Computed example of a mutant assay.
Amino acid sequence: MRILFLGDVVGRPGRECVLSRLPGLVSDWSLDLVVVNAENAAGGFGITEAIYEDLLEAGADAITLGNHAFDQREALVFIERAPALVRPLNYPRGTPGRGAALVEAKNGARVLVMNVMGRIFMDPLDDPFAGLDSALDGAVLGEMVDAVVVDVHAETTSEKQAIGHYCDGRASLVVGTHTHVPTADHRILPHGTAYLTDAGMCGCYDGVIGMDKEEPIRRFTRKVASGRFEPVSGPGTLSGVAVETCDRTGLAQKVGPVRLGGGLEDARPAFWES
């Protein structure tokens, strides 16, 4: 199975680069599954139903969230009728939506997509490790499902790496989101799980984690907020990770970074390029 995961979509530049490029990638790379983190898609904060529908139309099969999941108040309502929208599974009991979704890939495969939020320098949610155990025990890779994708929305590399190793052999891909900067540690862990600490963002890199640089600089230098954070305008880079899995076991066989357009050097999965 060919899986493409795209990092945090930030504002209009992020939406435009995903919506313009993704349909072609689905065709050119014969993608079976596309997962997109879109928790910053609506002006940098949250997601709307219209954006959710646009991403699905462009080729996404599942959309994950994070700490900004409900910044757009409409998400509290429409998430219940959005089966492919996945918020962190370790939110407290009673939170709207779902933390794991069983989706059908483009090739008909059964894929469990999960979203979990870290607790270091983040909101103190429920234990992510216990939540992962509960979800993974109910969907054994290679038996009950054909692939498992885990989006770890967390601040620290240590927590992301710990979750990666904790899921090794039980997931096809564990990938970090939230910090908006792509890391270079893509690899297949000892028991067959593809791993990347952070997929980076789909957005404009000529700013501070996708936001216009002036306000963050003022806050760092003066310690006083003087305005709202606004997504920086400019060409967006599509950032993520490509994974190819074994049809029998669901474990990873190949993994590589994806960076297209905008201000970063291009990176394409050589194993899919003709």
Rank of each mutant, 00 (worst) to 15 (best):
G11T: 10
A162R: 13
V241T: 09
R268N: 07
D198Y: 04
V232N: 03
E39Q: 09
S226H: 10
R259F: 08
P13Q: 07
Y205W: 03
F70N: 09
L56D: 11
D61N: 15
R87V: 12
V77D: 15
E159R: 00
R93L: 15
A184W: 07
V145Q: 01
G234Q: 03
E230A: 00
K254W: 00
E230H: 12
E215G: 03
D247S: 15
L89C: 08
L125T: 11
A252E: 06
S27T: 14
K213G: 04
G7E: 05
S134I: 15
Y91Q: 05
L31Q: 09
G24D: 08
A82W: 09
H186D: 03
G262I: 06
L56P: 10
V103N: 04
V181C: 02
I3F: 01
D71S: 12
E53A: 15
Y205L: 02
L56Y: 09
E53P: 00
N90Y: 06
V224M: 13
E39F: 03
D123N: 14
E16F: 05
L112P: 02
R21C: 02
T245L: 04
R110N: 10
D71T: 06
N115K: 12
P88M: 10
D266G: 07
G14K: 08
G261K: 06
L19H: 01
V113R: 01
D32V: 03
A38S: 13
D71L: 06
A147T: 05
I209V: 13
Y205D: 03
H191Q: 06
A105G: 15
Y205I: 00
P13S: 00
P83G: 03
V9N: 03
G44C: 09
R2Y: 06
P96E: 04
R15D: 04
V86N: 04
G240N: 08
E215Q: 09
G44N: 07
I79P: 05
C204Y: 08
L25T: 05
V232H: 01
K213H: 12
A194D: 02
P23K: 07
G256L: 04
F271C: 12
V116D: 11
D198L: 03
A60K: 11
G164M: 02
A69R: 06
H165P: 01
L56T: 13
E74H: 12
E143V: 12
R98P: 10
V86I: 15
E80G: 00
D133Y: 05
W29P: 01
M114C: 12
A69F: 12
V9C: 07
V35T: 06
V150A: 12
I51C: 05
L65F: 12
L196H: 07
A60F: 02
V35N: 08
V111M: 03
V111E: 04
I217Y: 06
E265S: 14
L102V: 06
A242D: 00
T48S: 14
Q72P: 01
S226K: 10
G240W: 04
D151L: 08
G142T: 02
Q161A: 14
V174Q: 00
D123G: 13
G164C: 10
N115I: 13
I120E: 14
I163A: 05
G234L: 03
T95K: 11
Y166C: 09
M211P: 01
I47H: 09
D266H: 07
T221K: 11
T64N: 12
P216R: 05
